[in-house]
Amino acid sequence: MEILGWSLVIILFLVGIAGAVYPVLPGALAIYFGFFVYGWFFSFAEYNVWFWIIQTLIVIVLFVADYVVGAYGTKKFGGTKLTVILSTIGLIVGPFVIPAFGLILGPLIGAILGELISGKDFQQSLKAAWGTMLGLFTSMVVKIILQVAMIVIFFLWIFVF
């Protein structure tokens, strides 16, 4: 059972990290659920209230930062809400439609279409698309850093504290 427990925890952590890049996966919630899986298979005794407060605050910061950083890049370069929506759809659908490059081309095409539909010229659409891409990739980096921090804190809490 110990191998199964650790396998599930590690799989959830990997799914969580992959979720930082691919938004269809649950990301931070998978990592958070991994903490419960560890508790169910082994023990909740290693956790205390501070562990849960720290991890929950990181998850909240993750969700807020994900939205704020992504939207900021779009707004900073003159994008609209439609641009944010279509670039997010492109991020989700792109890898299925264009397997090798969909993660980049999907949101880029979605952002350009969002701006063109909003009545902007092609040059302004490219500028807003660049801001959207910058925001998305910055958001991914922030998510990866915070999710790795969650995992490191977990291992420190289990094996050090």
Rank of each mutant, 00 (worst) to 15 (best):
E2A: 08
I3L: 13
I3S: 08
I3M: 11
W6N: 10
S7Q: 04
S7E: 03
L8Y: 03
I10E: 09
L12P: 01
L12S: 06
F13K: 03
L14F: 10
L14Y: 02
V15P: 04
V15E: 06
V15S: 02
V15I: 15
G16F: 07
G16Q: 02
A18D: 01
G19K: 03
G19D: 11
G19F: 05
V21I: 15
V21F: 15
Y22L: 14
Y22S: 01
Y22T: 05
Y22Q: 07
P23F: 13
L25A: 06
P26L: 05
G27A: 13
G27T: 05
L29A: 05
L29D: 06
L29W: 10
I31W: 01
Y32W: 13
Y32N: 03
F33A: 15
G34D: 07
F36I: 13
V37R: 02
Y38R: 01
W40V: 12
F42M: 09
S43G: 05
N48F: 03
V49M: 00
W50K: 10
F51P: 05
I53G: 00
I54W: 05
I54C: 02
I54P: 01
T56Y: 00
T56V: 02
T56W: 00
L57E: 11
I58P: 02
I58K: 02
V61K: 00
A65Y: 02
A65S: 12
D66P: 00
Y67Q: 04
V68K: 10
V68N: 00
V69L: 14
A71N: 10
Y72D: 08
G73Y: 07
T74K: 04
K76M: 11
K76Y: 07
F77D: 09
G78H: 06
G78T: 07
G79E: 12
T80C: 04
K81G: 14
K81I: 09
L82E: 12
V84P: 00
V84F: 13
I85V: 15
I85A: 14
I85K: 12
L86I: 12
S87K: 10
S87C: 12
T88S: 15
I89C: 09
I89T: 10
I89A: 15
G94Y: 12
P95L: 04
V97A: 14
I98P: 08
A100C: 00
A100F: 12
A100G: 09
I104G: 10
I104L: 15
L105Q: 02
G106V: 09
P107F: 04
P107D: 12
G110T: 13
I112V: 14
L113D: 04
E115K: 07
E115N: 05
S118T: 07
G119E: 13
F122K: 14
F122T: 13
Q123T: 15
Q124Y: 01
S125T: 10
L126W: 13
K127W: 01
A128I: 08
W130Y: 14
W130T: 12
G131F: 09
T132V: 06
T132D: 08
T132F: 04
M133N: 10
M133K: 00
G135L: 12
S139W: 00
M140T: 10
M140G: 01
V141F: 14
V142T: 11
K143R: 07
I145P: 03
I145D: 08
L146M: 14
Q147S: 12
A149D: 10
A149C: 13
A149P: 06
F154A: 06
F154G: 03
L156M: 15
L156I: 15
W157P: 00
I158F: 03
F159R: 04
V160K: 06
V160A: 11
F161I: 14
